[in-house]
Design a protein around this nucleic acid. Structure first.
Lengths: 279, 279
DNA sequence: TAGCGAATGAACTATACCGTACACATCCAG
DNA sequence: CTGGATGTGTACGGTATAGTTCATTCGCTA
């Protein structure tokens, strides 16, 4: 085995060292954890980790990017808001990435609005500390660029997905991605929010969720959603889920070789034996 | 005025120095032209410029990225091909960008297939020469990262556009973007190809094109399309066209200030006085 | 415990786009 | 000039999703 860790093993190891966890907050972000130990040490005392709550705006459109924000748990979305008032999610970020890609691409201001869709926690790093880290450790910029690449893959997949796939497939994909980004099987998400994320009517989402609940795949109750049968949900989603997952796993291993997970996409049979939890 | 050049003025100046143009091929690519003179000089003798023809595959999925490819004219698309055989364009590249974004993001292999949708010309730069340029001139990496940022913006906009906007709006957007990437008002594009790019039925595209032709906005004949009334086409497209254009103009000016074109989006009135040709 | 807001269920019509099929026109190669 | 390949027009029913509205249920707070 390499230095890779699954999300759940990371969670366990953190929660096992309880006294330590209270001294330094839980850093579960994959970009941060992929850094060399000296860089992690350097950043650890400069990161500000705190909870993020639903609806919180991380950066608004055009705002100067004062920090890079690394989620440890929960989901942050880049939202598109159209002139006619309709909205849809452009991309979502969890513990596999960070908010503020422009910081490694010439800097500047935020493009679009990023806000919290599912509560959790995130670590803030000021632009000054980030620049200091960039000068000291090349692995920091490398890791951020590696994630930017997987963000592009995610975006490309979403372009295709939103054009070609059904509402149900897209709902399933979003739920699976969210499941990969929260610790348990339960998270808070209203159908109203989900409809805005996917650019669908609430009525459409409501129908799909009812059906999924009838099938015993999910249960929900006034904004609290629980995934009961992950495998069944995987059967209802599209290839895009796997492709995006595959791309974000690339970030784990520093190398640029052929991704081992790529073959899994072709061979749908092997889904079951794939890590139960995405990251 | 700054060092910016409009696309058309670039074209003119090149075609005016005719004897020179035959010695060194036409480099119109905006990323290349945004570089410092020394870097341009360095690259000029290392670039291989040649025509690109419709259907030509630049990189196939998973192929090693041996070159960066900078279009000077025409359109190259990243195409998504789904398991069920349907296809849709994930992103398009013209003279404002280049193929091979992964080369500045940790390298590796091509993600997805890139192929020529509209014929033109492009300049190839080998990965070795690119690395040499990176070591010698920081502006090269900066320019490529700047474009990568605008690619992300383009992708984000496309995600939203494909979810929320009508087929006609998207057809109009694609035609306008293409118009910005070819010298004249005419280019070769079958409705079949357009339907694959947009993930629509050919019949749907056919109906839309008929309507646009009846309205005197375009004329076409067996694969040759001419835009007669650009302003009318702009009226039929969505905000996404302007947002993407705005982002790609960012690459022109090295700085990271507030984009002057941003305000133009809000003020739709000023469209008419905006550069007639996008780039 | 009464009331109110938030979350969901459910119904109606409307429509944009799909899948398919076939006909027709134009171009080109022999 | 003839036959086939290519590009386009069009028509059919089918379906997924939109837009809208109203009812219902739950949970929190006063």
């Amino acid at each position: 085995m390499s230095t890779q860790k699954t999300f759940s093993s990371t969670l366990e190891s953190v929660s096992q060292t309880n006294e330590e966890a209270e001294l330094r907050p839980d850093i579960r972000n994959k970009v941060l954890l992929s850094l060399r130990p000296e860089a992690q040490l350097f950043l650890r005392e400069r990161l500000v980790t705190r909870p993020i709550s639903v609806g919180e705006v991380i950066f608004d459109d055009g705002e100067p990017l004062t920090h890079a924000v690394f989620p440890n748990e929960g989901v942050i979305s880049y939202m598109a808001e159209m002139e006619d008032g309709r909205s849809v999610e452009k991309a979502s970020i969890g513990l596999e990435g960070f908010v503020g890609f422009a910081l490694v691409m010439g800097g500047g201001n935020a493009v679009g609005r990023s806000l919290v869709q599912v509560a959790g926690s995130a670590s803030w790093l000021s632009i000054d500390d980030l620049n200091a880290a960039h000068e000291r450790f090349i692995c920091v910029r490398e890791a951020m660029l590696r994630y930017s690449k997987s963000l592009i893959v995610q975006l490309m997949e979403s372009v295709a997905c939103n054009s070609l796939h059904t509402a149900e497939q897209r709902v399933a994909r979003w739920l699976l991605q969210t499941l990969d980004r929260v610790p348990g099987d339960t998270f808070v998400l209203t159908q109203e929010a989900l409809s805005q994320v996917l650019g669908l009517r609430r009525a459409t989402v409501s129908g799909i969720c009812s059906e999924l609940q009838d099938a015993g795949i999910i249960t929900y109750h006034r904004g609290t959603m629980t995934i009961c049968d992950r495998a069944a949900l995987e059967e209802r989603t599209c290839e895009c889920y796997w492709r995006v997952l595959d791309a974000s796993l690339l970030g784990d291993q520093g190398g640029d070789g052929v991704t081992p997970a790529r073959s899994r996409i072709a061979d749908r049979r092997s889904r079951g034996i794939f890590r139960r939890r995405g990251y």
